[in-house]
């Protein structure tokens, strides 16, 4: 089984981090994984996206053009990628920042006000993780117990206090 995802939004929203979290979840399940970022002068504020593949087989193209799953965290990203989602696929949309309603009926779409939720719950900058929580719930690509070891690999010991906040955001997303 192969899951191909595109995560897209503004630079600074933690798009690449969210993608890496998916890749680590796959790695810890002994899956083949790839994570491919868009890169460029858009360190902050510009657009950022990444392709993530998780598979039981060697991954052919790491460059995802027709995702099974899309996370869209701003309007331009939504416009750019929504039509590319495979029929039967999933779109998870930050409805705080994407105002358009999703009109596709051949995919399952979820509009979640994650930026607003993050602010309400005192989890600034964790809208991305809330959406990953929703993604995990809807795809079943991992169980919640698998997330902490992945976060521990990604977050340096100096910032270990962030792990709890990430877990909280993730649980919030999974409960939606």
């Amino acid at each position: 089984m192969t899951t191909e995802a595109i995560l897209a939004g503004f630079g600074g929203q933690g798009i690449l981090f969210a993608g890496k979290l998916l890749a680590y979840l796959g790695l810890n399940q002994d899956k083949q994984v790839s994570w491919l970022p868009s890169y460029g002068p858009e360190m902050r504020g510009g657009t950022a996206n990444c392709s993530v593949c998780l598979s039981d087989h060697p991954i052919g193209s790491p460059y995802v053009t027709d995702p099974d799953v899309l996370i869209a965290m701003n309007g331009p990203s939504y416009d750019k990628f929504i039509d590319s989602v495979k029929p039967g696929g999933i779109a998870i949309i930050d409805s705080t920042l994407v105002t358009k309603e999703c009109t596709r009926t051949d995919i399952r779409s979820f509009r979640i006000p994650s930026t607003e939720l993050a602010a309400q719950h005192g989890l600034p900058g964790m809208a991305n993780i809330i959406l990953v929580g929703k993604l995990i719930k809807e795809t079943g690509i991992a169980v919640i117990d698998a997330v902490r070891p992945a976060l521990e690999k990604m977050i340096p010991p100096k910032k270990a206090n962030l792990i709890e906040a990430n877990m909280k955001a993730l649980a919030l997303g999974m409960a939606l």
Partner: peptide, 8 residues
């Protein structure tokens, strides 16, 4: 692409 991508 190869330089920037992550894989195991």
């Amino acid at each position: 692409l190869l330089g920037q991508m992550m894989e195991p």
